[in-house]
């Protein structure tokens, strides 16, 4: 008996993912199957916002910015001190706005505030907050083609292991606080990729967890 094949909905424009039972295969996107291929249009522009960059003096020193007088910027930042930040906004690659300011929310010893930048978070031991163990089944993980879970994890607990084919994501058991976000967001929930306490995704658990 031939297993039913299913094509995953994904934002990846070049590759598509074919699920056959517990296995997933990656292949070049094929014209008609899967979501249609298209270049971003005008109307897509408004969907995602372009974030400005907030750079420290070290970051500016390391990577000069086109269109800005870097020595002047560095001097101005040095005058302010370690709290100095450079705000750069370049929505289309060109600097349209920049400002040097003293960020009142910088706390030198810690990296956290009310807003957390997921990918810059320093992982720390919050395993004590957790009541379930989260584990990514490397057989199912799409590796560097996906990475969605790593983006959404507020603790920066998920890291990419390896490169290309055979790469996968791994959850740092110390840094994971058990918030279920990756579990909900994993593009492969259907293929049971992230295990909770060794169990695969099941709608009953989801219903219980979210009170649905």
């Amino acid at each position: 008996m031939k297993e039913k094949q299913q094509i995953l909905v994904s934002l990846n424009r070049h590759k598509e993912f074919v699920v056959t039972g517990p296995f997933v295969e990656m292949r070049e996107r094929q014209g008609s199957s899967g979501p249609e291929k298209r270049e971003p249009t005008e109307s897509d522009k408004g969907k995602f916002l372009h974030p400005p960059e907030i750079l420290t003096i070290e970051e500016v020193a390391q990577k000069p910015i086109d269109g800005l007088d870097t020595p002047k910027v560095l001097n101005a930042m040095a005058d302010i001190g370690p709290e100095a930040r450079l705000f750069v906004y370049r929505p289309e690659g060109k600097v349209t706005r920049h400002e040097i300011f003293e960020d009142p929310r910088v706390c030198l010893e810690i990296q956290r505030g009310a807003v957390i930048e997921n990918l810059r978070e320093k992982p720390k031991d919050v395993s004590g907050w957790r009541t379930h163990d989260f584990f990514i089944d490397i057989k199912g993980c799409l590796g560097d083609e996906c990475g969605r879970c790593a983006i959404v994890c507020p603790e920066n607990a998920i890291h990419l292991m390896g490169k290309g084919k055979g790469s996968f994501h791994e959850i740092d058991p110390l840094a994971c606080k058990g918030c279920f976000i990756c579990w909900v967001e994993c593009v492969r929930t259907a293929a049971d990729c992230i295990l909770v306490d060794g169990k695969t995704f099941d709608p009953g658990m989801r219903a219980k967890h979210f009170g649905e």
């Binding site: 969907k47 974030p51 400005p52 706005r97 930048e117 983006i151």
Partner: peptide, 17 residues
């Protein structure tokens, strides 16, 4: 220009952690 916009996949953020 928001410093930490939601829906900016280049710089994912968590508010109110």
């Amino acid at each position: 220009v928001s410093l930490h916009p939601l829906f900016a996949p280049e710089k994912p953020v968590t508010y109110g952690a």
